[in-house]
Amino acid sequence: MIRIAIRWLIAFVLLAATFNPTDYNWVRWSLTNFGEQLPMIVLSGLILLIGYIIFLRATLRSIGAFGMFLVLAVVAALLWVLYDYGWLSLENQNLNQWLAIVALSFVLGVGLSWSHIRRSISGQTDMDDVDE
């Protein structure tokens, strides 16, 4: 369970570092400092891109595009239930952006951890997991 939480947290940090409603994110920093810090913007952008490639490739290999859609649909349905029962208000645009970051990080975290989740549920291992 700790491995899954760590993978989700890394996905959350990756997404939040790229964009979030505060002024502390790569998109706003790069737009503000484009003229003065272009080499650092390119370097940090490539590092973020590598993180996205790792997460997206692993997620697509483990659960596929349809699985990503299903996980996102479950998260969206959960938010709908919370909104329908009045436990969640969607008036705050910053909160909506954070909810989107959490939802997308959950999809990436589940995708990266799917082999561990499936193994704990079913007791079966993947061919990739034989070494563990």
Rank of each mutant, 00 (worst) to 15 (best):
L70W: 12
V74M: 14
L78I: 14
I50S: 01
L31G: 13
L70E: 13
L31T: 07
I53A: 08
G64P: 09
L60I: 07
N33Q: 08
W29M: 06
Q37L: 12
M40W: 13
I47Q: 00
G35F: 14
G51K: 04
Y52C: 02
I47F: 07
L78Y: 13
V42E: 02
T59M: 13
A77H: 09
V42S: 05
F55V: 06
T32A: 15
L72Q: 08
F34Q: 04
A58D: 11
L70F: 13
T32D: 12
F66L: 15
V75C: 15
G67Y: 12
L70Y: 11
V75D: 05
I41Q: 02
L31K: 13
L78C: 14
L31F: 15
I47A: 07
F34P: 01
S30H: 04
L72P: 02
S44Y: 03
L31Q: 09
L43R: 02
I50E: 00
Y52V: 01
Q37N: 13
I41L: 07
G45C: 05
I63Y: 03
V71A: 11
L48C: 00
A58R: 12
L43H: 00
G67K: 11
L56F: 13
R57F: 09
I53S: 01
F69D: 03
L70Q: 13
S30Q: 08
L78K: 07
F34I: 08
L70R: 10
N33Y: 15
S62H: 09
G45Y: 01
I47M: 08
T59P: 03
R61M: 14
A73S: 15
A76K: 06
A65I: 15
L38V: 02
L70V: 14
I50F: 05
I54Y: 12
Q37G: 03
F69T: 11
V71P: 08
S62R: 10
L60C: 01
L31V: 08
T32N: 10
P39F: 01
L60G: 03
R57W: 10
V71K: 06
L38G: 01
W29C: 02
M68G: 12
L78P: 04
R28D: 11
V42M: 11
T32E: 15
